[in-house]
Design a protein around this nucleic acid. Structure first.
Length: 459
DNA sequence: TGTTCATGG
DNA sequence: TATCCATGAACA
């Protein structure tokens, strides 16, 4: 695609996004008020319990000022200099980290209280953000197309793109504030594995194309290899846990440019075995194969500690880029070389990224940008359709690879049909560089229900 | 203003 | 060479 098409996309995109901003989303201000108070009370009682602890009084004795659990500097000094605990993890500048993972690894009950308090505060910050930005019970988040290096979008006031979802409690409390128009229902349309598919449009790796075309599960293949499992039962919660650990601890980090040592260490952390403790202890981790624990399974296949696991991950990484995805690997080298020669990279959507980039940047920007542009094109087309006379549904927002709509129930079946066509058929017809099948799934809330009530819609 | 930590993709 | 892109809050 050419720069004129790129410009046109942003121009039309701006107009379509503005209509979503103007439409807005309903927010229950009484609920915000109530919830803000409840969270504050809960935080206060947690805080006073914390201040009764020996941990707190020891901390207070160790310094001049009153201890502030929100200060990473104070907490880090107390834990790693006064108490002389070994930092489970360091920050980028080499100081002892006080993030959630580190504090949990230290296994001190009072630290869990600090974490619980921070979590409540984080949730309250979302509630207060909604209160600050709402006007007469409506939120109008901004969607920007001019701020992100990769030509993705961003959102602010309030940010519509980072409202809690993974943590059930945070999800429920924050999303329970957000509603469709009276008599309507919220609908979310999500592209499945969009970045992986768009990456394949650049590198055209045959193995990857096969995974995408057949719908065969790349992550469970990698999971079997990484954990040396013979079988893989998709329905067992244990395997689904390990598959998730593989996807988020190895496959995606590898795609984004991570390397085996980091991957191995991070994965070891996720099942509670920290690098400093050396050997696995028997009976740790989820149950795999014949009711054995993960750590016993590792011992039985000859991986007895983190060093040996790291060596194993190094082998898996070699196979990953040297055999399984070697065309992809060659594309990365070629692409990086091309950037070094010209100082810029051109996206399949007609955009050009310029400026100083590292290797990982040069390889990731084109994928991230073009993937979002697929969403933006779909957004524009769905918006165009809803502008036609008669429609009562409208788009209210967008989250990188997803569109959020406020739908009149009567229109739902027809709307789903049209959106499915636009996103998976019209788009690849309009952009001939898309050489992979696209897939979307739909989630819908009951009529008059909040965004916390989302459920899968079978189509 | 830079750093750290949380949230999302 | 070594995990990509954001927003927002709080601290020092």
């Amino acid at each position: 695609m050419n720069p004129v098409q790129a410009y046109t996309l942003l121009h039309q995109g701006t107009l379509a996004l503005e209509r979503a901003e103007r439409a807005g989303i309903r927010v229950d201000v009484d609920y915000l008020e109530r919830t803000q108070k409840e969270l504050t009370e809960e935080m206060e009682s947690l805080d006073s319990a914390f201040k009764d602890s020996k941990f707190y009084s020891d901390w207070a004795k160790s310094q001049d000022k009153e201890p502030n659990p929100n200060s990473s500097v104070q907490l880090s000094n107390f834990l790693y200099k006064v108490l002389k605990r070994k930092p489970p993890k360091l920050t980028e500048t080499g100081r002892g980290s006080t993030d959630k993972e580190s504090l949990q690894a230290l296994n001190i009950p009072e630290l869990q209280m600090i974490l619980d308090g921070k979590k409540l505060k984080k949730i309250r910050d979302y509630i207060e953000g909604f209160q600050r930005e709402q006007v007469d019970g409506w939120l109008h988040p901004s969607f920007n197309l001019h701020l992100v290096r990769t030509f993705r979008s961003s959102s602010d006031k309030p940010n519509f793109q980072n409202i809690p979802k993974r943590d059930k409690q945070a999800m429920r409390i924050t999303r329970s504030a957000l509603f469709p128009r009276p008599g309507h229902q919220l609908l979310e349309v999500d592209y499945g594995a969009l970045e992986v598919r768009i990456a394949a449009c650049y590198h055209k790796e045959p193995t990857m194309l096969k995974y995408i075309e057949t719908g065969y599960d790349m992550h469970s293949d990698m999971c079997k290899q990484l954990f040396k499992l013979n079988g893989f039962n998709k329905n067992s919660p244990e395997h689904s846990y390990l598959r998730g650990a593989t996807k988020n601890g190895f496959v995606f980090p590898q795609f984004y440019g991570d390397y085996f040592r980091n991957c191995a260490e991070n994965m070891a952390c996720t099942w509670g075995e920290l690098p400093s403790t050396g050997k696995w202890r028997s009976g740790q981790g989820v149950q795999v194969e014949d009711g054995k624990s993960l750590s016993d399974h590792f011992l039985s296949v000859g991986i007895k500690d983190l060093v040996e696991f790291t060596n194993h991950v190094e082998e898996v990484e070699k196979d990953f880029w040297g055999n399984r995805f070697k065309v992809y690997a060659r594309w990365k080298e070629k692409w990086w070389h091309q950037y070094q020669k010209t100082g810029h990279i051109d996206l399949l959507t007609g955009f050009r990224c310029q400026g100083i980039m590292g290797k990982n940047d040069a390889i990731n920007y084109p994928v991230q940008g073009a993937a979002f542009h697929c969403l933006l094109w779909s957004f524009i087309e769905v918006d165009k359709m809803l502008q036609l006379p008669g429609w009562r549904s409208r788009i209210i927002g967008q989250i990188h690879d997803a569109i959020v709509l406020d739908v009149h129930p009567v229109e739902l079946p027809m709307l789903v049909k049209h959106i499915k066509r636009i996103t998976t058929e019209d788009l690849p017809r309009a952009w001939d560089w898309i050489n992979v099948p696209l897939d979307v799934d739909f989630e819908v809330c009951p009529v008059d229900a909040s965004w916390a009530e989302k459920e899968k819609l079978k189509t």
